[in-house]
Design a protein around this nucleic acid. Sequence first.
DNA 1: GGCAGGAATGACAGCGCTGTCAATTTGCGT
DNA 2: ACGCAAATTGACAGCGCTGTCATTCCTGCC
Lengths: 337, 337
Amino acid sequence: MRVRLEDVARAASVSPKTVSRVLNDEANVTDATRQRVRAAMEAMDYRPHPSARSLAGNRSFLVAMLYDNNDNPSSTYLAEIQDGVLEACDAHRYSMMVRPLRMRDGDFIRRLDTLISDHHPDGVVLTPPITDYAPLLKRLREHKVPYASVSPLRRGKTLGVTMDEQHAARAIVEHLLELGHRRIAHVIGIANHGASRWRLAGYREAMAAAGLPEDPALVVQGAFTFGSGVEAARQLFSLAERPTAVFAANDDMATGVMWAAGEYGLKVPHDLSVCGFDDTPLSRQLWPALTTVQQPSREMGKIAAEQLLTELRGHGTGRLVQMPFSLQIRGSTAIAP
Amino acid sequence: MRVRLEDVARAASVSPKTVSRVLNDEANVTDATRQRVRAAMEAMDYRPHPSARSLAGNRSFLVAMLYDNNDNPSSTYLAEIQDGVLEACDAHRYSMMVRPLRMRDGDFIRRLDTLISDHHPDGVVLTPPITDYAPLLKRLREHKVPYASVSPLRRGKTLGVTMDEQHAARAIVEHLLELGHRRIAHVIGIANHGASRWRLAGYREAMAAAGLPEDPALVVQGAFTFGSGVEAARQLFSLAERPTAVFAANDDMATGVMWAAGEYGLKVPHDLSVCGFDDTPLSRQLWPALTTVQQPSREMGKIAAEQLLTELRGHGTGRLVQMPFSLQIRGSTAIAP
DNA sequence: GGCAGGAATGACAGCGCTGTCAATTTGCGT
DNA sequence: ACGCAAATTGACAGCGCTGTCATTCCTGCC
């Protein structure tokens, strides 16, 4: 029937315990033995039984990915992160479980406790915006469940991965400045999301560096959705002195801005330059294609999970990795009119 | 430390085996005993150890949700299904695992085998477009892993959930006909997806019933994306005799059509009526809001999982459930010009 | 009242692996 | 060549639960 560890042991003429050691990359096995056991495993296509390992070894080989499904950034973004986390888990033969948590509902602590006592994840990956919710982090530490975060708000000794979003935002605004734009507007994302803060900060930084005083009328609140982009843009286009460029905090809102531009008879990029952030598939399909910042979400999910797994295996200690970004200059931005 | 089944047994003055019986809803336990055991479990906040259950009982309490991440319908759609499946699994104390499969890559059979030998899922939920890929289904049957499908192409004795998409498509086209439209175009989704076929069939049915001969120029291929909607619309708007209404096979493409309408100076709904399918969040944020068909994806995921779980528990046998749909008549459709 | 027959309960082994610790082998200095 | 410490290997129990089968407890009926 099923090939068991014992069968491998017999085939390799060693004790089961030695096979176990090889399986878990433990020390104190001679290379010769290790090779022999590996060969036997390979030959017999041995697959350890996760439940047995988990029961005997008191660990689950399970990573849970937590997200907030009340209030999440786009589901595309989450899906990409999920894909990356999954890839890393697969590579290390961990399994992954996804858990929506509803922060607003208040019972999330109970739900977290349930998750932990029911499934005993060895570690947890946190995604925005729940990377910095103090009660959650506290509870995880109480349960002694290690975690890694994707784009946490607070940098520090946290495990995980970030991108220098502020720098990226500054760079994209500088691109607009170089094109001669002076009245540059910004559409902010959902308040309190790290992404919103950093992108706003980058915008301000670039404007200030260019010696342009901030015009409050040019900074409008949005909510990361297409619709909120449309509304923000309408507000901007109704101003006596209209902006010549809009930097929206994500692509969905930028798309909304382009949509609204059509309503007002503004041609992009001739009358108005628009840029976004994220480099979603949508941004390439638009016409003109959207100038934006590429954020490697999938890769970030993967790296966050790898940091966590490194920590779990005790192989050295993980840290907060900073990802590079890249501007995608496309057709939606042009010389100021 | 941890409360074990044995502890509950002692508290309820029964043997461990009896507690196990209660835990698994088995027969041959008096109500009195059952109550007593339940009370003890409750009082001690007992949580069975999944690995121990799985090891001893030879089942995993695991449901895997499979999807194609080369070629999927929108990630929003999948995310909703995932949420629904998760909800059902949670309710029955099963855990859920998501597995992207790349049908195009050809090694998916090996990946499926790996999934099964590594994790031993008790059952599998299939999502479009991999609900009908014969080699996959065959392999699942060979492994004797039961499956349930969301919107399978082939109805039959399959377990799962569908919606009468053809009927819904017909209904929405009839809505356009009632508004006086005669030149009604259709933008098709990705070929071979059941969704594309049914929606096209519904369109044809409605047109034929109204006695309108099919004009091939009015039926354009798309690919379920915003961009493909834009391109399809450009094609339609370049016709000598333009359509007065467009029914796109999903909301993303319908949004693309509205976008392209702006480029051509067509006002929606005054000059052009547009409708979609799916009722994505986007459809409500547009202006005008999109007339579309509400497809209860989350609910469908939940029901598919429930059908599967029913089957797994042997409590009666699951079947193919048909969901109701509802038209969402909004601002993007109006009386023909 | 006694007994068959089914319902309810329990004893016990074992699922496949790893932790602990004991046994054995190896390498090294003298 | 010998002794000793360190490296390597193995024996064995047990993780928390369920399957199997034996045992006990009820019924109803003659």
